[in-house]
Design a protein around this nucleic acid. Structure first.
Lengths: 337, 337
DNA sequence: ATGAAAGCGCTAACAT
DNA sequence: ATGTTAGCGCTTTCAT
C-alpha cells in the first residue's frame, strides 16, 4: 500500500492534522516542523488521496469533458486545449466520448457528475430542453453551443462565413454553394445565418444544397450537386467535407481552384497538408477549450455568480490554395510556379 | 446537495446497509424491500458517490490514460478505443497528455495513481529504467512499447515492414528508402528491425535516411534526400511524414507513384482521403486500445497474476494509389481512368 | 503552533 | 434478511 497521512504523521512524530496543514496551509505551521514533515512525506513518496480529500472538502479536483467523437480532429484539438488548461490549474480531466449519440450525453453527464467539480459539454447534440433540464448538481459549461443562459463558449461562426463570402465575392464569384452539416448542429445553423446575411450584403447568390453527413463521404456525395448548381465556389460545413468534395470534383475533372473554389471550416491540421492546401475558416480550437475551462473554473470559484457567462471567440479566414478568381477563362495566365 | 445514501435510507425506512445492498448485491435483500429502496433511490435521483465507495473498497472504477499527444490522429484513435472498452466495463477514464515531454510521464503517472485502479501508458518516450522503476502502487499497462515484463500490447511492426518491402519488391523496386522517426521511439526501432531483415530476404537495397521529426515537416525535409538517394520507393515512419514527403515530392516535380512509390504507416483516417490515396501499413488502433484495457482489467482481476502479459496485434498493408511498378518508363500506358 | 475528535459517503464485518 | 458498528484517508472545528 502507498503511504497515507498517518504513516507520515508517525514517522514525523506529529499528528495527522499537522501533516495536513504542513502540506495544504504551510503558513499555519512552524517552519521547522513543516520542513520535517515535508521531508518525511517526500521520503515516503506520500501523495494525498484526492478522493478522500474530496469527500470532506466537496471538491474533487476533477473536471469532466464530454465530446461527440474524440477521433474527430476538431474535437481532439479541443480536448488538447481543455487538458492543458485543466492541468495548469491542477485539475485532472475525465473524458467521455458519446460516439455521436445524443442520448448518451445526459446519461454520461449524470454518471460523471459525482466525481467532478464541473463538466464541459462539447458540441452537444441533445435538444435544448433536455440540456436545460439537467439539474443544478454540478456546474456545466457548454462549448460550441448556446442554450438558455448556461455558461458557454462559442466561436463567431457567422462572422467566419462573412469573411468567406466577402473573400469569394472579391474574387468575382457571383453564385456560391453551401454544403450544410447536420440539421441539429448549432454551428451549422449559425453558419447558415451568417451566410444568408453576407450573401445579401454582397449581392451574391446562394445555392443551399441540403444537409450532408459531416464526413468525407458527405462531401463526395455533395460534389455533383455543387457542379450542377452552377456555382463557381463552394463553402463546406467543415474541412473533412471539403476534402470529400475536392476528391469527387477531381474525379469529375473539375480543377480546384480553376474550375471551382473551395472553402472549408475549422482548419484541422490536415487542411494545410493537402494539395492544393485548403482555404478555410479557422476556429481557435485550443483556445476555445482553454476558454471553456477558464469559464467553468470561474463559475466554480464564484459559486455560480460569474460575471461573464458567455464568451465568443473570433474566427479567421485562412486563404490558401483552393480559392481563386472566378471562371478560369477570364484569368490571366499564371506567371510563376 | 445531491441525495446521499442516508437520505434514501430514511425515505425508504431502512438502514444504510440495506440501501447499499439493495443497489450493489440485490440478491441479498428481500425483493419487496429492494423494490421500495430502488424506487425511492430513483425518485431522489440518487447516484452513489464513487469516491466514497472507492475509499473503502479500494477500487475507484477509474482508469488512467497517458498519451504523448491527444491531437495526433494516431493517438486519438487509440484513445477512442480505450474509452469505449473502459466504458463497456463500467470504468471511467482520466486522460493526460504529456505534450511529447518524456519527463512529464512519470510525474503524471504518480499524480494519477491515487485516483485510478490502473494506468495505460501509451507509446511512452521515457527510458526503460525509469519505466521499470515505477513503484508497484498501481498496475500499469504499456501500449506500443515493451519494457521488461510489464504487461503490454504492441503491434507487429516488423511484420508490417515485411509486407511493405515485399509489396515494393514485387513491383520491381530494388532500392528502398526509409525515413525514420524519433530515435527514442520503440515503434521506430521495431520497424527498422523488420526492415533490415526483409531487405535482406528480398535482396533489395536500403537507404536509411536518418531520423526525422514525426511530423509533416519531417517528411518535407526528408524528401530531397529521398530523391537524391536513388531509391524508387520510400517508406515513411508514419502517414503524416508520408504526406509531407509527397508534398515536397510534388513541388520537386516527382509524380507519385510514377516517379516514386510511397508507403506510410498507421493508416490514420486522412490517408484514404488524400490524392492519391496513401498505401500504408495499418495499425489496429482501436483494437490496440481495447486490448490494452482488457489486459489491464485482467491484471486487476487476478491481482497481478495474469497469464498472458503481452499481446501483439497484427499489422496489415493496405495498398492504395501511392505505390506502383518501378520506373515510369518501363510501365505500360494506363488504359483506364 | 499543535493535537484530539468528529465526520464526509460509503461498504464490510459482525451481530441479530 | 436486516440493523449496528467501525473505518477507508483526509480536513476541519474545537481545544489546548
Amino acid at each position: 500500500m502507498a503511504a497515507t497521512i498517518r504513516d507520515v504523521a508517525q514517522a514525523a512524530q506529529v499528528s495527522q492534522s499537522t501533516v495536513s496543514r504542513a502540506l495544504s496551509t504551510p503558513e499555519l505551521v512552524n517552519p521547522e516542523t513543516r520542513a520535517r514533515v515535508v521531508s518525511v512525506a517526500r521520503r515516503l513518496g506520500y501523495e494525498p488521496n484526492r478522493a478522500a480529500r474530496g469527500l470532506i472538502t466537496g471538491r474533487t479536483g476533477n473536471l469532466g469533458l464530454i465530446v461527440p467523437d474524440i477521433a474527430n480532429p476538431f474535437f481532439s484539438a479541443v480536448v488538447k486545449g481543455v487538458q492543458g488548461a485543466a492541468r495548469a490549474a491542477d485539475y485532472s480531466v475525465f473524458i467521455a466520448d458519446t460516439d455521436e449519440e445524443s442520448e448518451s450525453e445526459i446519461g454520461l453527464l449524470r454518471a460523471l457528475s459525482k466525481q467532478v467539480d464541473g463538466i464541459i459539454l462539447c458540441s452537444p447534440r441533445a435538444p435544448d430542453d433536455e440540456l436545460e433540464a439537467v439539474g443544478p448538481g454540478t456546474p456545466v459549461a457548454l462549448m460550441n453551443r448556446r442554450v438558455g443562459d448556461r455558461p458557454s463558449v462559442t466561436v463567431d461562426n457567422a462572422d467566419g462565413m462573412r469573411q468567406a463570402v466577402e473573400h469569394l465575392a472579391a474574387l468575382g464569384h457571383r453564385r456560391i454553394a453551401y454544403v450544410a452539416g447536420p440539421r441539429t448542429s448549432w454551428s451549422n445553423s449559425e453558419r447558415e445565418r451568417g451566410l444568408h446575411r453576407s450573401i445579401a450584403d454582397t449581392g451574391t447568390d446562394l445555392a443551399h444544397l441540403g444537409y450532408f453527413p459531416p464526413q468525407f463521404d458527405g462531401g463526395v456525395a455533395a460534389a455533383d450537386l455543387v457542379i450542377a448548381s452552377g456555382a463557381t465556389a463552394v463553402i463546406a460545413y467543415n474541412d473533412v467535407v471539403a476534402l470529400g468534395l475536392m476528391s469527387r470534383l477531381s474525379a469529375r475533372g473539375v480543377a480546384v481552384p480553376e474550375g471551382m473554389s473551395v472553402v472549408g471550416c475549422d482548419d484541422i491540421g490536415m487542411s494545410s497538408m493537402t494539395h492544393p492546401a485548403l482555404t478555410t475558416v479557422a476556429v481557435p480550437k485550443h483556445e476555445a477549450g482553454r476558454a471553456t475551462v477558464g469559464l467553468l473554473l470561474s463559475v466554480l470559484a464564484e459559486g455560480g455568480a460569474a460575471s461573464a457567462l458567455h464568451r465568443e471567440l473570433p474566427t479567421q479566414l485562412i486563404v490558401r490554395a483552393t480559392t481563386g478568381v472566378a471562371r478560369a477563362s477570364d484569368r490571366p495566365a499564371d506567371g510563376h510556379s
